[in-house]
């Protein structure tokens, strides 16, 4: 395993009166794709939102690239070159695809070569470049959401359930795109419920339950162990195929 780029130690997060994260310990190795698995309500989305500062941790430390980022303001965290693709996609519907991309390019206008690379991953975005993002299909919005996160080289990308409600044909395209990102040695923390999708991409895996990490290891080991899958996730990879 590579050295950690991001680590969470004993992180607790409260949302109102609810104690959602109850001591999360998580390590995201540099240059690898870490998958965060778990049933609905386990705290996966809250973990990503806590890392991004959208919900401040009430206890614990979050360390990114050697510096503590727990409790910092979201824009400050984003400026550390951390990209975030929320579950809701969060595209700006009234703005065009081009304007959405330009907004995400904080260092200046998007680089032409980088855009070509993105168009290679998501060809639909080139076709609908001047179209308001609100008119895109669900899958295309998801592509735009991911493309926005990678319009500039990022140190870390947090992606929340990119396959949710997306057609299988588009998921295949997404797998290819993520593999390309992995080849570029981008560090990714991916929250996913689709185990087949997660197993085809993940290097390391962490499984959450009731606001805690209950399993950590390699994805290869988890994918090969159907008993462990059933114990942790209630369903084995074989059931997904």
């Amino acid at each position: 395993m590579s050295e950690p780029l991001l680590s969470l130690e004993g992180v607790h997060t409260h949302i109102g009166q609810y104690h959602i994260l109850q001591g999360v310990d998580l390590v995201v190795p540099r240059g690898e794709l870490t998958v965060l698995l778990g049933r609905n309500g386990a705290g996966k989305t809250t973990t990503l939102r806590t890392i991004m500062g959208l919900w401040p941790p009430s206890r614990g430390t979050i360390t990114f690239d050697g510096q503590s980022i727990g409790g910092r303001a979201t824009p400050d965290i984003a400026r550390l070159r951390i990209g975030y693709v929320p579950e809701s996609m969060g595209v700006f519907a009234d703005l065009t695809v081009a304007e959405n991309m330009r907004l995400a390019a904080r260092l200046g206008p998007p680089d032409a070569a980088r855009l070509d690379w993105i168009f290679g991953l998501f060809p639909a975005l080139k076709r609908f470049w001047q179209l308001p993002a609100g008119l895109l299909s669900g899958g295309q919005k998801q592509m735009l959401s991911i493309a926005r996160a990678i319009v500039e080289p990022k140190a870390l990308i947090l992606i929340d359930e990119p396959t949710k409600g997306i057609a299988p044909a588009i998921i295949e395209g997404m797998i290819a795109a993520f593999k390309e990102l992995k080849r570029a040695e981008t560090t990714i923390l991916l929250v996913e419920q689709n185990f087949r999708f997660a197993a085809s991409l993940g290097d390391t895996v962490a499984v959450m339950d009731d606001g805690r990490i209950v399993h950590r290891g390699t994805m290869e080991a988890l994918a090969a162990d159907s008993v462990l899958q059933t114990r942790l996730l209630g369903l084995s990879l074989a059931a997904h195929q």
Binding site: L54, A73, T74, P75, A78, G90, L95, E99, L103, R106
Partner: peptide
């Protein structure tokens, strides 16, 4: 570009923050 950020904030302020806009 400033106006586009305003529109982005109107549509989804959390998302705009996550892109690094205060």
């Amino acid at each position: 570009p400033f106006g586009r950020v305003l529109q982005a904030i109107r549509e989804n302020d959390f998302r705009a923050e996550a892109l690094g806009y205060n």
